[in-house]
């Protein structure tokens, strides 16, 4: 009896969590008639017409490409730089480290508004607006502090003795980092990279202001679906599904690390 109650409660929880997502995905597979039927229909013949429409939309495809390019490039840069800095920081004494970590955390906390407007000005002056380089640079910049914090936690898990042993053997610092420590932190590198991609892919505010015609990322693209043709929920939900799906897959790949990463502060701007 108690057992049954537990399962009912669990089911209720999962319905609350998953129903909105299910409903969006279901709507994306419905015809207009089914989508707005009252009472709502739960059994329907799925159609991929909405997906066909979205995938034929060149603006959406370009957005997808931009999101992919920007989030992956920016994340690779952030992780590379972040790993270096984190390795250096882990070797310092506690007092120094604490001060530096505090500073890094402080960087992550500012609302995006404060740097987006000056950045826009600057980008216009040097003619970088509407270039992928601008978005990549900005996202790398906001991701670096996160990558540092995240990589620190992984480097800390690596026993000090390894580094000490390598030093006794006379290895140069960069060599120790490259051939001893980094291979051991491979899992951490991948997790950090995936999280950076996830944050960048999902980010909206910076992209809203700093992206141009050719560099618009998906979250911005989808808002243009909202204003141009009226709210066509069919294609819109299909687009929404296509936007979130890759991230859900990636996120589930690094499950445990998502919470760890977000605890270190999100880079949501």
């Amino acid at each position: 009896m108690k057992r049954a109650l537990f399962w009912i409660g669990l089911l209720a929880l999962l319905v609350l969590v998953l129903f909105p997502i299910y409903w969006v995905v279901a709507t994306s597979l419905k015809t207009v008639k089914d989508a707005f039927a009252q009472p709502p229909v739960f059994l329907f013949e799925p159609t991929f017409a909405n997906y066909a429409k979205v995938l034929q939309n060149s603006v959406f495809l370009r957005g997808f490409f931009n999101s992919l390019l920007v989030s992956i490039t920016a994340s690779v840069i952030a992780v590379a730089v972040g790993a270096l800095a984190a390795y250096g920081l882990v070797q310092q004494n506690a007092g120094k480290r604490r001060a530096h970590e505090k500073f890094i955390l402080g960087l992550r906390i500012a609302p995006a508004l404060i740097f987006v407007v000056p950045t826009y000005y600057l980008a216009v002056r040097v003619g970088m607006l509407n270039s992928h380089a601008l978005l990549i640079a900005v996202y790398a910049f906001v991701n670096i502090p996160f990558a540092i914090s995240m990589m620190i936690t992984f480097f800390e898990d690596i026993p000090h003795e390894l580094r000490d042993a390598a030093r006794v053997d006379g290895a140069k610092e960069f060599r120790i980092f490259w051939s001893v420590i980094l291979p051991l932190a491979r899992g951490g590198l991948v997790a950090t990279l995936i999280l950076c991609v996830l944050f960048t892919w999902n980010e909206f505010f910076i992209a809203l202001v700093l992206s141009g015609r050719d560099t618009q990322t998906l979250p911005v693209t989808i808002t243009s679906f909202l204003t141009f043709q009226g709210i066509e929920w069919g294609p819109l939900t299909a687009a929404a599904t296509l936007i979130m799906l890759p991230m859900v897959v990636l996120g589930l790949l690094v499950q445990g690390n998502v919470v760890r990463g977000m605890t270190l502060g999100s880079v949501k701007g």
Binding site: Y120, Y121, V124, R125, G127, L129
Partner: peptide, 10 residues
């Protein structure tokens, strides 16, 4: 406006 005010000629 941002383009105009910075005389970008964009």
């Amino acid at each position: 406006l941002l383009e105009f005010s910075s005389k970008s000629g964009r």
